[in-house]
Design a binder for these strands. Structure first.
Lengths: 228, 228
DNA sequence: ACTGGATTGAATCGATCGTTTGACTCGTTT
DNA sequence: AAACGAGTCAAACGATCGATTCAATCCAGT
């Protein structure tokens, strides 16, 4: 994987860019091969000639946007591990290493901030079998390394509780990326402001009050359902 | 709206139930009229005869699951307002009134907990124009009333910051509902456990550290990008 | 038993989908 | 000049989609 090189110009590149843009705008299922070709100004057969199939183009778009992001995430994570030795890393720094590559990569993607975020979010949100070419394994391995940093910092929570909260954090981020109103360049808060707010929200949520373990028979009624 | 009564049996009811189940399983766009009719054991023309169109059935499924949920949410919200007078309501109680109806309604939906949650989440996540029949206005008005409770409790944050965090909270919940692995009946934590964890996470995130306002020129570098 | 609206059935409509075909146009090589 | 491979083109393939048609069927009201 990753040994493919996309040409810097020509119809193949045009198809790739048009597909990425349309996918981000409407979602994967809502974009037809004819839409992509019309946007790229090519013939209908060009997609199957250059990318084998619609899914091939789709998977390549996902891979070529996700892989560099994960690379930068891994880089920042290793910098964090080196700088802090074995000591716990502040939550905000971990979360920063997790989301800041989104800002960095969006500027090199050729897409607008909003569209790049939507594309990223949709890759995770819609059919996850899109990146079954080893990219999924890469993402899982990366998340495991991030999780190890989280457990070292938030040691008061059980690992299961923390794992659940990490899932909440990731889900929150994905929805934030997909939602068009989430990242608005027109308002006062841009992508950085939104992600900064996400970091504050998630950091507080991750380290928030320890869960009170309640025995099943101690549930005193419907008002105590959610053991807090 | 809401003056329709669905028959308790017959092909129309079978179509409705089959549609709700299939929509929750595969998402709206992935379910065809023929799929629904095959699952309901009816003819292909039955959908257009009883519901006018595919979108008509789709909208009715959404409305008939969302409206009772919002009704119960509104009820619990008014109970909260009455019990606490004008005083701030604890975050956990507000969030409880917001998500507990999901548990209650899921038990009366005929669907499994997982499918009911997925159906709810997909209604919000996929095309929001599905419930443009006034149901959207109802949801917005309800969220406004919840927001007023939130601002009264979390008074240290600016209203804009709190509004953004509420969006994060809602997005977190939506993703939690849609994600199949989020609500697992097989593991130790059921729907209640998951939602309890969501309440703890969101409550901490909503009341978490006050955002430090940073002037644009005071940004000292990439490491201070997310003003924390 | 007859009637008339409600409902169901099989068949088909036009549209769109992803993909494939085969001829055609190039630029390069032999 | 001949041959070749890469790329592009219009056209059509088979499949599926939502929706429609119209005859057949059901069933309560007279």
């Amino acid at each position: 994987m990753r040994d493919f090189k996309l040409p810097e110009s020509g119809p193949k590149r045009k198809l790739f860019d048009a597909a990425a843009c349309l996918f981000a705008e409407r979602g994967f299922q809502a974009v037809s091969v004819r839409d992509i070709c019309a946007a790229a100004g090519t013939n209908i057969a060009a997609v199957n000639y250059h990318f084998g199939s619609r899914e091939g183009l789709l998977g390549l778009v996902a891979a070529d946007h996700l892989a560099p992001l994960n690379d930068e995430r891994l880089l920042r994570l290793e910098v964090l591990e080196k700088n802090w030795g074995g000591k716990p890393v502040p939550l905000e720094e971990i979360l920063d290493a997790f989301v800041r590559p989104i800002v960095t990569r969006s500027q090199k993607s050729g897409l607008s901030e909003v569209l790049y975020c939507r594309l990223l979010g949709l890759i995770f949100q819609e059919n996850p079998e899109i990146f079954s070419n080893g990219l999924h394994a890469q993402s899982v391995a990366l998340m495991d390394r991030f999780k190890r940093l989280f457990v070292k910092t938030v040691s008061s929570l059980s690992e299961e509780e923390l794992e659940g909260r990490i899932q909440l954090m990731v889900g929150c981020l994905i929805h934030l990326l997909v939602r068009p109103g989430g990242v608005r360049d027109d308002g006062k808060v841009g992508l950085e402001g939104i992600l900064g707010r996400f970091i504050r929200f998630s950091a507080a949520g991750l380290r928030g009050g320890v869960s009170v373990e309640v025995e099943p028979e101690k549930k005193v009624g419907p008002q105590a359902m959610f053991d807090f």
